[in-house]
Write a protein that binds this DNA or RNA. Structure first.
Lengths: 135, 135
DNA sequence: TTATCTTTGCAGCATTGTTGCATTTGGTAA
DNA sequence: TTACCAAATGCAACAATGCTGCAAAGATAA
């Protein structure tokens, strides 16, 4: 599915900003930060526009946001399937790469009496295969 | 273990700010935000002092930080035992309560070839027992 | 009590994110 | 194609979280 089809499917206006951002994400294999997107996009957009675009794309389930350690924020395309309640991400402590582990799943631990689970996020930190070799 | 003993054990100067913050955490059953701490502490401290104190206490393994959805930051006393690599927290979507699930554990999903796990954080979002009844 | 080292308060700055308002752009109907 | 309207964008201002440098205040040891 290409950029235009994605936007059309969600009844979103096909603006250049949205098309550029989705384009960058389609070609990136991993999650990308605002900074990385800014560098790869042709044309300059206001920071506000970026944030509003992210919000729109997140709201439509096209992308999702991953936050590592409070201040590293990355965005990645969502699996075009159904809405999943278990999200698994990997963060490389050395190169900062963030990757969605789409096939991975886990069993939620038992919660205290009366607690209800709605959505669960798992973030695994360590070394990716590349950094693992380099060290 | 009381406030003074905790600070002494880590060779930290027993300042009023540190004692107040640990005191609040000892009496709170759940994780607390900077705002909540500010409200419960007697005496006023500069924001910088809070952040530096948090950093010191985190660095000594006395407390840990939990970040939910990028902008909700809470702090909680750490289990006085050994350093754990699996952290499980619960966040209530309704009242915003954050609780450490100390006994809970889970099996990390399989990672891609060559990836190494070092630390893993799991955050379960849903309704706590109280909000579950109220609705 | 004094000397020394640590902590604190203040000012200023960075990053991530939001809101309001005027302007521009995309999609559509004539 | 042109004109129009709703949606998107840019700009300015602001909020929350967090950091750094420096001077003042506090804690500890002698």
């Amino acid at each position: 599915m290409n950029t235009q089809e994605i936007l059309q499917k969600h009844n979103l206006v096909r603006t250049s900003c949205r098309q550029s951002i989705i384009g960058v994400m389609l070609s990136a294999g991993t999650a990308v930060s605002e900074e990385e997107i800014k560098g790869k996009v042709d044309g300059t957009y206001d920071r506000t526009t970026f944030y509003r675009t992210f919000k729109t794309l997140i709201g439509n389930g096209i992308i999702h946001k991953i936050v590592v350690d409070n201040h590293l924020v990355k965005y990645a395309l969502s699996d075009s399937g159904m809405h999943k309640s278990h999200h698994v991400h990997f963060y490389c402590n050395r190169c900062g790469m963030v990757k969605c582990l789409v096939g991975a799943d886990f069993k939620t631990p038992d919660l205290p009496e009366g607690y209800i689970e709605m959505e669960t996020e798992l973030i695994v930190k360590g070394f990716c295969s590349h950094c693992n070799l380099v060290i």
